[in-house]
Amino acid sequence: MDIGKPRKLGKTIDEIEEGESLSVTESIEDNQLLLYLGLTNDANPLYVQHDYARQTAYERPIVPSIMLMGIVTSAISKHLPGPGSHVVNFSVNFVEPVYHYETLTFDFEVIKVDKMKDVITISVEAVNTENDRVLDAVVMVQPPILIEESEETNE
């Protein structure tokens, strides 16, 4: 990925309609967990230590909640509304624990388009392969906004 390279932006507020949806499937792998733990310096034994986790109600290591939030925000940045969008509010409920190596399906739906505030509201639900709901979220997102260049800068 070339960081300085211009990219196509996602949908603007005028291009988004209530009811638009997206489905994303992600598998939680060791490399993702290790990157998260290294990046955040999070040494919670519940995330990596099998001996400790066996002594808890979870019985085995679980995936950090913030990683699941990262999957949600990444899908918003990549797909709906897409590049250039900005999450301004995030409300999430972690319904069930997510374990290492699980595959999750995240379903996104635009439930409100507020052109006055230039924000859309997206409902998110994630389920595991047994179709158990593991996450519910409501995310407010500002779609990409470009400030029109003035004629002076075009000369």
Score class of each variant (00 low, 15 high):
M1L: 14
D2N: 11
D2H: 00
I3K: 14
G4L: 15
K5S: 09
G10T: 03
G10P: 03
K11Q: 07
K11I: 02
E17M: 09
E18H: 03
L22S: 09
L22D: 11
E26F: 11
D30C: 03
L34A: 15
L35D: 07
L37A: 12
L37P: 04
G38Y: 01
G38S: 10
T40G: 07
T40R: 11
D42K: 12
P45A: 13
L46I: 15
Y47I: 15
Y47S: 06
R54F: 09
Q55H: 12
Y58S: 03
E59W: 08
I62E: 05
S65Y: 00
I66S: 13
M67W: 00
L68S: 05
G70V: 09
G70L: 13
A75E: 12
A75G: 13
S77Q: 15
H79L: 05
S85N: 01
F90A: 07
P97A: 11
Y101F: 15
L104C: 05
F108S: 02
E109H: 01
D114S: 00
D118S: 06
I122P: 05
S123Q: 13
V124F: 06
T129S: 13
E130F: 03
D132V: 00
L135Q: 11
V138K: 12
V138H: 06
V139C: 09
P143F: 04
E149H: 06
